[in-house]
Write a protein that binds this DNA or RNA. Sequence first.
DNA 1: TAGATTGTTAATCGATTAACAATC
DNA 2: TAGATTGTTAATCGATTAACAATC
Lengths: 205, 205
Amino acid sequence: MNAEKIPDIIIGRLPIYLRALQRLAEKGVHNTSSQELGEMIGISAAQIRKDISQFGEFGKQGTGYSVPFLIERLQDILKVNRVWDVIIVGMGDMGHALARYNGFVNRGYQVTMLFDNDPAKIGQKVNNLEIFSTDVLVEKVKQNKIKIAMLTVPASAAQEVADLLVKAGIKAILNYAPIHLNVPKDVQVQHIDPAAHLQRMTYYL
Amino acid sequence: MNAEKIPDIIIGRLPIYLRALQRLAEKGVHNTSSQELGEMIGISAAQIRKDISQFGEFGKQGTGYSVPFLIERLQDILKVNRVWDVIIVGMGDMGHALARYNGFVNRGYQVTMLFDNDPAKIGQKVNNLEIFSTDVLVEKVKQNKIKIAMLTVPASAAQEVADLLVKAGIKAILNYAPIHLNVPKDVQVQHIDPAAHLQRMTYYL
DNA sequence: TAGATTGTTAATCGATTAACAATC
DNA sequence: TAGATTGTTAATCGATTAACAATC
């Protein structure tokens, strides 16, 4: 156990461990080892043990880790032992796809509000959720104390909407626009850019 | 300049540099510096200079980098000075969204074929492209010598389809399914998992 | 020229791995 | 018990930063 600040690179691997463990649990596996887990996800056993041991002694010598127990511990650490409300801003194709995706709930998230600035879209429903105007975003997000947003607007609007999200008290933004967002440092941003991922691979072709 | 193997972590930053430079170019900016670029994207100027200098001397003391020249060099390095054909397998909401996304072409990619195994979807068109059966995937991909695929099938089918892609000669897979894919080591895989990104941020809330 | 900024070196910092005592 | 596997230490490896001569 270690009370010091945990490096972000370790935090970034915990969701990968959790994902693999949940998959093992679905298959009915009750115990695993750092070696088995490592082979599943392509990470060394030593690294997995070291990462997990930052947070406590969750394994047993000789027998490894209890799958359900380790899932619980990781969920606690990542604070996904509850379900967080999430909003989506920008109801284009990507916003639609995310609104209809049913893989979020069992990982700790539920999309509860949708926003767009296109009058033709406002009032329509996607997956039984009404699309609201961005004019009421700050008010509604504050009212419901929502902390997490997925941003799927065009690049040209992204920074402006991000400013709105910050104003509304959002503290975590999953950014699908291919631009870097400037936000206060107490606001987390993660970036998803498929073209950038493709380019990273194309180098090796 | 350096003929040795370049670390993958540097390759991973080049698309981010390229994205920022293309944005500057759109704004009509012709010259930039490592400092300006660094402030744009939150990376230190020293790191940007060091990364770029792995591939050649692309800047000038006193004046910095020519934006169009550096864009060309990075496009050459990443091999996106051409347009690569890409297929999408799995025409659910996410496959649809990617098929209709128009941000790929100016970054080096064009979606040219769509596949699904659902008879109700086969033969339909999305963005003017016909959806083909996965039964003909290997044949069609080989025929057209396509090397890059986006995988948007459910987790339960992902490994099976990945095996098919490998068989078809695909060398780069952008994987949207929340499972780790086992592929030969000459096949690149990049993973996009929005829930994992959200979990990484939730830790800090 | 004077000011600015690169490319590169050396120093620092941080992450990964190997190895093994502890122990289930 | 014997075998297996953790948690942890020390060693290694790799990445980042600071600093500055070179030079546009």
